[in-house]
Design a binder for these strands. Structure first.
Length: 844
RNA sequence: GCGGGUAUGGUGGAAUUGGCAGACACGUUGGAUUUAGGAUCCAAUGGGAAACCGUGCAGGUUCAAGUCCUGUUACCCGCACCA
């Protein structure tokens, strides 16, 4: 009996694949290509998580199948290695981040290789490698030269824990996405990238790519485009106050105006003495500034504000004078920082008007505006609106656009929620920003032939007191000469954010060793774009958006020949763990003990929640060190084998859905692999499928193939298990059948199938074989079993030849004993036959 | 509040166009083998004694509904005063 010695089998084949470079992409550009990509990991000190292999294995099965189908496959891997955790670890342990990074990368690489993933290791990239970040810096310089990188004094999100500025995307519920510390507002001079210049294209070009729908909608919502108009009101002091509105049709209903507390006019008015309640206004402004983003959202429901006493605004369409308020429900950073308030047709304005006793004028008929704001744009009809009376909302908007243009009181305008990208970090372990500041010449880019601008070797990584970069202390590096005038100048000491290197890495894989260009023309013409990119939903509004932006910029300057980096984007669900503090996950004994202790199940659960917090109520949670429910893939590889881990991760459930890890379910996958392995012992001769299994094999080939392409590996594996169960019942398998079976299993179970293929002497390596073909006509058996229903209830089954006509089928059905019994003495009202599928006889 | 998603046995999950609900697997139970445990193999396994009843809940369309329509609830994810 063949012994399944998975440890030696897996070691053996991993070495062969490595030595022979079995999975290296070929230079033959006449072959059809397939570029599959998974998000390269951040090589953390914790090592690989069982979540990583889910994505990697899924595209690995695709890559392996595509190779067997004759594609030249590029399936690369690399390291997104700049970032805070490494720097923090380095600080605590007094080791240079470079050393830490190298150690972590080596560990990750070993772990990935132990999983038998068919990456092309010759194309490994590392974002911290100077030959790589040279090009990251080069792209920054191009952005600068094209006016898309600029320095700005601005309010930024400052993480009190990491002592670093964060992008909007990195702030979650007012706290730092990474460390959870509160985020406060600070004024700092920052490098910014003008991603907003690409806002329209980042939305519109989504139409041309094959992304799963939720990614598209999430990006669209994040970019937040809205069409409207800017309307010029006039202050009684003479200034023009411009507001943005998407509902210019309601202009006649504006009964007050609101400015954000930060609006620039306010200070002018206070200083010139126009405002009579200056103290009150000042106090409100200060209060608003003190509130963190978090508090501002917390108090979202309760509207506050102060009326400016002494100045009013004039509505351009009817000359009405309306009061002006300041309130923090109007954001300085969106639109013009000022709104016209139409309480009758906007919920927030309505709440504010009710609180401050302001008039509510209905201008769109359809609701009861004294009870609640009427915001429906579909059914309403304009009233109290002069020349627009009787129009629909849509028509009124157009009429108003026209009126505004004609009278010079405003114009159409599109606004976005998307903000420019804060690109500076006051940290050491990132790409230096290749800019120099000269007192005489201002900011100057360093000459391209001086790239890469290397990170200096330093030993003190602590951030400076007011959040200054540790590089700022290293004056010998900071002090340099101006590339423009040759005079003394200082280097930028901030570094780029974690997201920089990952914004273009997919291009470098196509041509990783090119020392002249970011990517060679021939390489990108052949390999681009990425055919299939899989990654986490958490990157939708970060990495995925940023990298699309950079790619579009590179397209604009002629570096890449196509507009969208990724033709297809899919996303995997997380692998979750069991919560050891949840009552339902405890053993019966533990539960009994708790019930004894607290009196009842309810009381026990309550006690657990008190002890461990709300989380105790959730049986399935994210894996975390503190809960001790983290599963280490190394343990699974050691105890069950890489093939079993791979098969299990693919079998665990719907790929897009989160799934709880279950170590006991792994056993079933291991059993299946052993079953397939043991079939070697019952092999018989034969160079064609045996008649009894012919249709089963054709069907399975079809199903496994299409399921892999659709990320439905779980059902592909189920089909293979069914087939193997049937073969097991027969007790033998012929060589032709076994050969096909091994190839079908290979994408999921690469090591065992290679070994079995070799032992059976089928010739060559399995990964070099052709993917089996199926014949549609042979997928169906010549005899079909059809269920027979009476009044929709199953009463019998019949076996009839494939494609039998209705009469034959009905006669066979009525000949069935149970069916005949059920019909006996009743009138047949209707007879329905669905060819090859089902019979339903309706009787009364 | 807005946007997206999910709901099927004890568990993870399957079910082309509406066409046998519960594939496949875990777990459980019984049996075989074993000194014992583990491993393996065989059998049973949605509920119910049965008629029947069963896909979050309430209706509807249909010969036929997990799937379509109307209403509703719970949970998850994203955004959150974006004018």
């Amino acid at each position: 009996m063949a012994v399944y010695d998975y440890r030696n089998i897996e070691k053996k084949w991993q070495k062969i694949w490595d030595d022979e470079k079995t999975f290296a992409a070929k230079d033959d550009h006449t072959m059809p290509k397939f570029y599959g990509l998974v998000e390269f990991p951040y090589p953390s000190g914790a090592g690989l998580h069982v979540g990583h292999p889910r994505s990697y294995t899924a595209l690995d099965t695709v890559a392996r199948k595509k190779r067997m189908e004759g594609y030249n496959v590029l399936y690369p891997m690399g390291w997104d290695a700049f970032g805070l955790p490494t720097e923090n670890f380095a600080m605590q342990n007094h080791i240079h981040p470079e050393v830490v990074t190298k150690k972590n990368v080596d560990r990750f690489r070993d772990q990935l290789k132990s999983l038998g993933l068919s990456f092309d290791w010759d194309r490994e990239v590392n974002t911290t490698d100077p030959s790589y970040y040279k090009w990251t810096q080069w792209i920054f310089l191009q952005l600068y030269k094209h006016g898309l990188a600029y320095k700005k004094e601005m309010n930024v999100n400052y993480c009190t824990g990491c002592k670093v500025v964060l992008a909007n995307e990195e702030v979650v519920n007012g706290v730092c996405e990474r460390c959870g510390s509160p985020v406060v507002q600070r004024t700092k001079s920052q490098w910014m990238l003008r991603i907003t210049a690409y806002a329209d294209r980042l939305i519109d070009d989504l139409d041309g790519v094959d992304y799963i729908e939720r990614v598209k909608t999430q990006q669209k919502n994040w970019i937040g485009r809205s069409y409207g108009a800017e309307v010029d009101f006039t202050a009684t002091t003479g200034e023009k106050i411009t507001v943005f509105t998407t509902r210019c049709d309601t202009l006649f209903g504006a009964t007050y105006m609101v400015l954000s507390p930060e609006h620039s006019y306010i200070n002018n008015w206070i200083e010139s003495g126009v405002i009579r309640n200056a103290d009150e206004v000042r106090a409100y402004q200060e209060e608003a500034a003190r509130k963190s983003d978090f508090e501002r959202t917390e108090l979202a429901k309760d509207k506050t504000g102060v009326r400016l006493d002494g100045v009013e605004a004039v509505n351009p369409v009817n000359g009405n004078r309306i009061p002006i308020f300041i309130s923090d429900y109007v954001l300085a950073s969106y639109g013009t920082g000022a709104i016209m308030a139409v309480p009758a047709h906007d919920t927030r304005d309505w709440e504010f008007a009710k609180k401050f006793g302001l008039p509510i004028i209905e201008v769109v008929k359809g609701g009861n505006v004294q009870e609640e704001a009427f915001t429906d744009c579909e059914t309403g009809v304009l009233v109290n609106s002069g020349f627009m009376d009787g129009m629909s909302v849509e028509d009124a908007k157009n009429a108003m656009y026209e009126w505004l243009e004609k009278n010079g009181k405003g114009s159409k305008k599109t606004n976005f929620k998307l903000r420019d990208w804060v690109f500076s970090r006051q940290r050491y372990w990132g790409e230096p920003i290749p800019m120099v500041y000269c007192e005489k010449c201002g900011w100057q880019p360093i000459p391209e032939d001086q790239l890469p601008l290397l990170l200096p070797e330093i030993t003190d990584f602590e951030p400076g007191e007011d959040g200054e970069s540790p590089l700022a202390r290293h004056t010998d590096w900071v002090n340099t000469t101006c590339p423009c005038c040759g005079g003394p100048a200082k280097r930028e000491t901030d570094t780029m954010p974690q997201w920089a290197g990952s914004s273009w890495y997919f291009l470098r894989y196509m041509d990783p060793h090119n020392d002249k260009d970011l990517v060679g023309k021939e390489a990108i013409d052949y390999w681009g774009p990425v055919d299939w990119y899989n990654g986490g939903m958490e990157h939708t509004t970060l990495h995925l958006l940023y990298s699309r932006f950079w790619h579009k910029f590179l397209y604009d300057i002629g570096v890449v020949p196509y507009k969208e980096p990724y033709a297809k984007r899919t996303s995997h669900g997380m692998i979750l763990g069991l919560n050891p503090h949840s009552f339902v996950n405890m053993t019966k004994d533990e539960q009994q003990e708790l019930i004894k202790e607290f009196g009842s199940e309810e009381a026990a659960k309550k006690a657990l929640v008190e002890k461990y917090g709300e989380m105790a109520d959730h049986p399935i949670v994210k894996m975390s060190k503190s809960l001790g429910n983290v599963v280490n893939p190394d343990d699974i590889v050691r105890d069950y084998g890489a093939d079993t881990l791979r098969l299990y991760e693919m079998f665990i459930g719907d790929f897009e859905q989160a799934a709880p890890w279950s170590t006991s379910s792994i056993k079933g996958c291991r059993r299946f692999i052993e079953k397939v392995w043991q079939l070697q012992d019952v092999l018989t001769d034969g160079d064609a499928y045996s008649p009894e299994f012919e249709s089963a094999f054709h069907r399975t080939i079809k199903k496994v193939g299409s399921d892999i392409e659709n990320l439905k590996a779980n059902t592909a594996i189920a089909a293979l298990m069914s087939l193997v169960n049937d073969i097991g019942k027969k007790g033998s398998i012929n060589r032709a059948e076994y050969r096909t079976l091994l190839i079908l299993c290979n994408p999921f179970v690469p090591h065992m199938t290679e070994e079995a293929f070799e032992r059976c002497g089928f010739g060559g390596q399995i990964s070099q074989q052709k993917w089996p073909e199926y014949d549609e006509a042979k997928c169906i058996d010549s005899v079909v079993e059809m269920p027979v229903q009476i009044n929709g209830k199953l009463r019998g089954r019949i076996n009839v030849p494939l494609d039998s006509d209705n009469d034959t089928v009905l006669n066979a059905a009525k000949a069935d004993e149970k069916v005949a019994q059920a019909i006996d003495g009743k009138t047949v009202v209707k007879e329905i036959v669905i060819k090859n599928k089902l019979v339903n006889i309706v009787v009364k």
